[in-house]
Design a protein around this nucleic acid. Sequence first.
RNA 1: GGCGGGGUAGCCAAGUGGUAAGGCACGGCUCUGCAAAAGCUGUAUUCGUCGGUUCGAUUCCGACCCUCGCCUCCA
Length: 467
Amino acid sequence: MPLRFFNTLTRQVEDFAPREAGKVRLYTCGPTVYNFAHIGNFRAYVFEDLLQRHLEYRGLKVDRVMNLTDVDDKTIRGCRTCGVPLADFTAPFKKAFFEDLDTLRIKRADHFPEATAPEHIARMIEMISTLIAKGHAYRAEDGSVYFRIRSFADYGKLAHFNTEELRDGVRVRNDEYEKENVGDFALWKSYDEADGDVSWESPWGRGRPGWHIECSAMATGILGPELDIHCGGEDNIFPHHEAEIAQSECVTGKKFVRLWMHCRHLQVEGSKMAKSAGNFFTLRDLMEKGWSGREVRYALISVKYREPLNFTLEGLAAARSALQRLDEWTVRLQELSQSASAQGSAEKSDAFGQALDDDLNISAALAVVFDLIRTTNRRMDESSVTPSEALSLLNWLAGVNSVLGFDVEAESIPPALSDLLARRATARAAKEWKSSDTLRDEILAAGWVVKDTKEGQKLTPLPRVGG
RNA sequence: GGCGGGGUAGCCAAGUGGUAAGGCACGGCUCUGCAAAAGCUGUAUUCGUCGGUUCGAUUCCGACCCUCGCCUCCA
């Protein structure tokens, strides 16, 4: 079965193949670094990570760009409030963002361009000049440059909006009378006192780029005029991605993106996430409550990207339990495979990959994993799984984890516990149950659960207390 | 007002014109000195409501109800 993905542009699931055989040019809208990213942001990034990893699992080389928006209204407001230069304001949030990516086991993109980098500002200015020259943009009285949406017949095609019918601007600013059409968007914003010392020189005077042109410039500058896939959150469809199409295609004359994929938003405990509602979480908030990045990753990845995800504490707890089931199975296989003499054979079924081929059907893919866990657990109970088969299953799991990223976090047993364990083993051998139980409590207090199995004591790290 | 997504067991959720995956929770069992942990196992006569098409619909069509989102810089 070929790879099939839902295309926002056509609103259909379509077969996918990159333009250049074997190589996928992927652009994903990254964060605006004015704050710590919240879990809603990360749902999108985890979805994009799943997409990239699955494409790679299918043998495709992915060249991925994720931009960092480090100049816009919010970052400017932030640095003005703090009274520091823009770059100093955004730097810690950039750093935090990369730490968060690691926490969630999100693979690094190949490029993380920053909007304020000189070469990208230069490209933005170059693109705007071209747009003006071709009649797609015009300069307003205040020096700002706007894109003329009437000049691009396809404007509105991605969002399926009839631009004539767009609701009149509730959010139209008072200076917008300078525009030919209320829908025209800024390519270059002339300097305003509120911008402080944030500005660049341009043929149209001092100012700064509009948000949309930042992405068009970085995308086409790094990946070329024709991308295979462009992703983002659903809110980016309009106007951001619509604008990107207009700008890029009017400059290059080529079809900008072949496949548009958008991730639905998440809700928290059934409501839209909002600071005012008290249900606003950054990844850091969840870590403080004792959840691991792996657990959050599971919770975010386990609902299909095209469905709204209701993020709940119950869902996190379910993620923790499901991962423990997976971990137990892994440990069982590892112990069994230790006596394997031969190499494990290749896996027999690719049901897992095929599920993901179908528009990243994660539910079906996880069902394949858990089905296999149940059937093989049953057989291990009957001792009918051979060591070499266990090895094969572990190999299969490694492939699965190259996509899902659920690898077990190796935690070494502290030396202090070895002593406790040894003493407990002695006590148990002597059937000194009271002493055994006391030692069990001590081990528990140290953060580990001791299990008595046929093979002796085994330790499992106690999950940190969840919030 | 325009456009779009959903309503499947307590919760999350897949799916198909032919009789309901998977995860969590819950009950039972096994194991155990007792536990814990783990494993196994059971649990939707039914897929928002009402009509229609069909031999047969959760799946197709129509109407309705509920809910969520987008409509100029929020992933």
